Amino acid sequence: MTFIRDTELVLRATVELVNTLPHTDTTGEDTMVSVDQLEDFATRHAYTGSRTHDDRELAAVRGIRNRIHELWTVERDAAVPLVNAMLRDGKALPQLVKHDGFDWHIHASDPSDALAQRILVEAAMAFVDVIRADEYARIRVCQADDCRGVYVDFSKNGSKRYCDSGNCGNRMNVNAYRRRKADAPA
């Protein structure tokens, strides 16, 4: 794959965060509404640094989701000013770090910065890699009829069409099978 491990990990976390938005989910529900849900997300994606573990932190993280989601609504060149603004607003200062079993990788914000700021900067840094690798075509929105979930196509041949959040690929394949069966002569 084109992306290094830490970029891929951040892209996967970013996809999951964006897909907590109500308009990306087949159910239309916001799935980041409690501090516990944020705790689970931050723990699973190994976000380090200071944390307040409160409703204010939750509100701040919820507040960056639409901004990050915008990266899935634009082409590569239009993403550049969005990414640059995220880096500027997050006061990004890239540095190599090594921690928690992860080898050398880049953090671009201070561990004492707010979680939402660190998530925004990490997402922007991952998109820097996507843009520089000229792989923006892998930034996609699910093609299922009833889903607007986002994903990054990590497949070798770049042929993925559906997100992983709503079992969309299986659902669309079953629908296609049923249509073929219904159209087939008896």
Rank of each mutant, 00 (worst) to 15 (best):
residue 1 M to N: 03
residue 2 T to M: 08
residue 3 F to T: 12
residue 4 I to G: 05
residue 5 R to T: 14
residue 11 L to G: 02
residue 11 L to S: 08
residue 11 L to T: 10
residue 12 R to N: 12
residue 14 T to W: 11
residue 18 V to C: 06
residue 21 L to G: 09
residue 22 P to A: 10
residue 23 H to T: 14
residue 23 H to K: 14
residue 23 H to I: 15
residue 26 T to C: 00
residue 28 G to A: 05
residue 28 G to C: 03
residue 29 E to F: 13
residue 32 M to I: 13
residue 33 V to E: 14
residue 35 V to A: 01
residue 35 V to W: 05
residue 40 D to P: 01
residue 42 A to P: 07
residue 43 T to C: 01
residue 44 R to V: 11
residue 44 R to W: 03
residue 44 R to P: 00
residue 46 A to T: 15
residue 49 G to Y: 11
residue 51 R to G: 05
residue 54 D to A: 09
residue 54 D to F: 08
residue 54 D to Y: 11
residue 57 E to W: 09
residue 60 A to H: 11
residue 62 R to F: 08
residue 62 R to I: 12
residue 63 G to K: 12
residue 64 I to T: 04
residue 65 R to D: 04
residue 66 N to M: 09
residue 67 R to M: 02
residue 67 R to T: 15
residue 68 I to Q: 12
residue 69 H to G: 00
residue 69 H to D: 05
residue 70 E to F: 02
residue 73 T to F: 01
residue 76 R to I: 06
residue 77 D to V: 11
residue 79 A to W: 07
residue 79 A to Q: 03
residue 80 V to K: 09
residue 80 V to T: 09
residue 81 P to V: 06
residue 83 V to G: 08
residue 83 V to C: 07
residue 84 N to H: 06
residue 88 R to W: 10
residue 89 D to K: 13
residue 89 D to Y: 07
residue 90 G to C: 06
residue 91 K to D: 14
residue 93 L to N: 07
residue 94 P to M: 01
residue 94 P to S: 02
residue 96 L to N: 02
residue 102 F to Q: 14
residue 103 D to N: 14
residue 103 D to T: 14
residue 103 D to C: 06
residue 108 A to H: 04
residue 108 A to Q: 04
residue 108 A to G: 12
residue 108 A to N: 08
residue 109 S to E: 12
residue 109 S to Q: 12
residue 111 P to C: 08
residue 112 S to Y: 04
residue 114 A to H: 14
residue 117 Q to A: 06
residue 117 Q to P: 02
residue 121 V to C: 08
residue 121 V to D: 01
residue 122 E to N: 15
residue 122 E to H: 13
residue 124 A to G: 14
residue 124 A to S: 07
residue 125 M to F: 06
residue 126 A to C: 04
residue 126 A to N: 11
residue 128 V to G: 00
residue 129 D to Y: 03
residue 134 D to N: 14
residue 136 Y to T: 09
residue 136 Y to K: 03
residue 141 V to Y: 01
residue 143 Q to G: 00
residue 143 Q to T: 10
residue 145 D to Q: 13
residue 146 D to L: 07
residue 146 D to W: 02
residue 146 D to M: 03
residue 148 R to Q: 09
residue 148 R to D: 14
residue 150 V to N: 00
residue 152 V to W: 04
residue 152 V to Q: 02
residue 154 F to L: 05
residue 154 F to G: 01
residue 154 F to H: 10
residue 155 S to L: 08
residue 156 K to T: 08
residue 156 K to P: 00
residue 156 K to D: 07
residue 157 N to P: 02
residue 158 G to H: 11
residue 158 G to V: 11
residue 159 S to Y: 08
residue 161 R to A: 01
residue 165 S to N: 04
residue 166 G to F: 10
residue 166 G to L: 04
residue 168 C to P: 02
residue 169 G to S: 06
residue 171 R to A: 12
residue 171 R to Y: 00
residue 174 V to P: 00
residue 174 V to A: 05
residue 175 N to H: 03
residue 177 Y to S: 02
residue 178 R to F: 01
residue 179 R to F: 05
residue 179 R to I: 06
residue 179 R to K: 08
residue 180 R to W: 10
residue 181 K to A: 04
residue 182 A to T: 07
residue 182 A to N: 11
residue 182 A to Q: 15
residue 182 A to F: 01
residue 183 D to S: 10
residue 184 A to T: 15
residue 185 P to D: 13
residue 186 A to I: 05
